[in-house]
Amino acid sequence: MKLVSKLFGEINIDNSKIVEFENGIIGFPDLKKFTLIYDEENEGGGINWLQCIDEPEFALPVVNPLFISEKYDPFINDELLRPLGELNENNLCVLVTITVPQDIKKLSVNLKAPIIINVEKKKGTQLIVEDNFPVKYEIYNVLESRKAEEEGGK
């Protein structure tokens, strides 16, 4: 199907790659269908986009939390994930949303409410974790120093 998204213009969506969020994302129960848009250059290491199918003007920048912090290991009650089907290391995809404020130095990720996707079953959900992770975890400095390291190593 074709979709005109706000950020990427007209894009072709592979129907088999649509992920269903039965209850929407938190605060937006009507946003139920999304697809993940990858940046090919970064091979999944960089920003991905959770593009909403129901409302094409909505897309959330997301990132693998392990790209930000290797220690990210929130406790998640398995029962809350039951609607996603059986999860294992091959079908589990965890993402956190990125918030881009006007002041880029305040760039942050939301570690309190990860997005969990079963990529085989194409089912996803967003949960609030009990652990004391911040809603706004600032990442500008982490990314800057990593970038500097990469460029220094070239």
């Binding site: 897309a59 959330l60 920048p61 881009v100 006007q102």
Partner: peptide, 17 residues
């Protein structure tokens, strides 16, 4: 979290990002 999702969908500095 609702506010954070809303803010995440409103991207100001895409190029800077």
């Amino acid at each position: 979290i609702q506010k954070e999702n809303q803010d995440s969908m409103n991207i100001d500095g895409l190029d800077a990002l």
